[in-house]
């Protein structure tokens, strides 16, 4: 085909637009609604929420999961756009990592060694491993669908960021239910569940986000 003919064709198709930003926003909206519904109607908020939220461990758990979700979504907005640098947004994710390392250090310093085992295992490790991926499923599907419009330099990385965003969102909701508040629990089970979702996102991204 002659390039001029192709240009005429493309120009005639100018009306169909698929902007990435609003697509991602819609996907996140779907994810938030589904996660909120699961939290309120299925597993329920924790009963002692009104008092528990004042406890530093609980507040930390909620703020940390929320900050991971926000930072991952910030990276998500960039990773699908050609020529947009990622380094700063990637480094920002080290902040919650540093926070959890410090929190684990404090927990180990402030609590007797005999209680570490119980704090680590908690009451609901199995639930955490089950529900964070369950909460992630719809947000991840919605985000990956939106990201089909994107043009990431690495589809695998973009998929992983989609997975981390979904996992962050899921954890930020699940944390309002979760009765285990020790940073030891958070650093172990939330991380395993989040890493699994991120890994699934990376695998799916490698297949679905090629352009």
């Amino acid at each position: 085909m002659k390039t001029d003919d192709l240009i005429r064709l493309l120009a005639a198709d100018v009306h169909v637009r698929e902007p990435l930003g609003p697509a991602i926003a819609r996907a996140l909206g779907v994810g938030v609604v589904v996660c909120a519904a699961l939290l309120v109607f299925d597993i329920h908020l924790r009963h002692d929420l009104a008092t528990a939220i004042m406890l530093p461990r609980v507040a930390f758990k909620i703020l940390l999961t929320l900050s991971i979700a926000v930072l991952a979504i910030g990276l998500l907005e960039r990773v699908g756009r050609p020529g947009v640098p990622l380094a700063t947004a990637e480094r920002l994710l080290l902040l919650p990592l540093a926070a959890i390392v410090i929190a684990v250090g404090l927990e180990l310093a402030l609590t007797p060694a005999a209680s570490w085992g119980a704090r680590l295992v908690g009451r609901n490790a199995g639930w955490c491993l089950f529900y964070i991926p369950v909460f992630s499923a719809v947000p991840l599907a919605a985000i990956l669908t939106a990201m089909r419009r994107s043009a990431p330099e690495s589809p695998t990385l973009a998929g992983a960021v989609a997975g981390l965003s979904a996992a962050g969102m899921a954890a930020a909701f699940y944390a309002w239910h979760c009765p285990d508040d020790s940073p030891l629990f958070l650093a172990t089970w939330y991380t395993i569940a989040g890493a699994a979702v991120t890994g699934v996102g990376a695998l799916l991204g490698r297949r679905l986000l090629v352009w």
Partner: peptide, 26 residues
Amino acid sequence: QDVLVTVHLKRGTWDQTRPIGPWLAT
């Protein structure tokens, strides 16, 4: 032509507050 079609289909990924050069080059 491949680049033109790609630019066309992926133009929604260009952030209008950024310069277009790096986007196109990538």
